[in-house]
Nucleic acid binder design. Structure first.
Lengths: 196, 196
DNA sequence: CCTACCGATCGGTAGG
DNA sequence: CCTACCGATCGGTAGG
């Protein structure tokens, strides 16, 4: 009876994953039931299973989509001919913009990946480790070049990545500054803190 | 039969809350069952209810304990005669040390407070808002004094508080630097990023 | 502190 | 896409 309204350029599955992102962000993966999701989408719970295999698959979709986007970005960027500081600047801005525009899926993938099970769990853990190592490599490059002061690179990565996830509170705050101002402020505080 | 082993200076309830911190951190509040908790403590699930009222009470204990510690700290510190930068330095170090030594309860209170229900939910949300405002106030003081460069104070607070929560990854990492080095690095990057 | 058990809700399936 | 329903598990209680 009630059909899933899929957007112009999207399959019904994509519509479901999008609704799942919003719910997982709001209530967490474990506290979200398939009946909650069905209600949000406008069908009965059983009907969801014509488009997806399991609740777990929804979390997989979200986590791997986000991981791929960040991984692709760091690879193309790292291949370019920028200085280390310029690379870090670009990485940070990409993270900020992603958090501003797709914060629900980014937050979910950051906070709920623990609820995946193998082999997806190990896969995501690996990707996250590789990403952080690559990021740290860029910082170490900058330290060698004397662009960046002598800090522990993994600690700097950890600070930058987690600082960005603070944008979630920015979304919730009443009187937000503009996304552009937010970006400039974050770059100013974080990148300046690294420079020699 | 099997009795709860309470530590020398702790009630049985405290033993249960401590185990709950570890489990809520590991699996999340919603995915942790009272049977999981009972097993960890060494009794049957029903027996837990001789010491606590509900699962929700455990989360309340954790969240309010952490909130009180941070609130007390900022109040005593803000009453002192330090410069703004010195206050921020001290606040940051308190956060770092707390995350290093009591990271399970700090992470749980940071990540799971959404699962509280009113009136506890509103209470915690208020406390968090007040804390951030007070922190931002100190930064604004520093901007007026020309100790700190002209940044958006709420954004700086958001960066600092979330950066600190990155210490969770530090705990999980194989080759950790020492807590002292971690602290010095975080202060170096974050506080230097604020200075004029 | 345990055994026994409650109603509610969960993720998911069968069959149309 | 829905109705009907499954076994499992949930938080919590009664009664000893």
């Amino acid at each position: 009876m009630a059909k899933i309204k899929s957007k112009k350029n999207g399959t019904k599955k994509e519509t479901i994953v999008e609704a799942a992102s919003r719910l997982f962000h709001e209530k967490g993966f474990s506290a979200t039931s398939m009946r909650d999701l069905a209600e949000k989408v406008g069908v009965e719970a059983a009907s969801l299973y014509n488009h997806i295999q399991s609740k777990s698959e929804l979390l997989q979709e979200i986590c791997f989509k986000v991981a791929n986007e960040f991984m692709t970005n760091i690879e193309t960027l790292d291949a370019g001919a920028l200085t280390a500081i310029e690379k870090i600047n670009a990485l940070l801005r990409f993270h900020i913009q992603h958090m501003v525009h797709h914060f629900e899926e980014v937050v979910v993938s950051d906070r709920e990946w623990r609820h995946l099970s193998d082999p997806y769990l190990s896969n995501i853990q690996n990707q996250r480790r590789i990403y952080r190592k690559r990021f740290a490599g860029i910082i170490e490059e900058g330290i060698k070049n004397k662009e960046i002061k002598e800090i522990d690179a993994p600690t700097a990565v950890l600070i930058i990545l987690h600082a960005v996830s603070g944008i979630e509170s920015w979304h919730r705050s009443k009187r937000k500054i503009s996304p552009e101002l937010l970006e400039e402020n974050m770059v100013m505080i974080l990148v300046e803190g690294l420079k020699k």
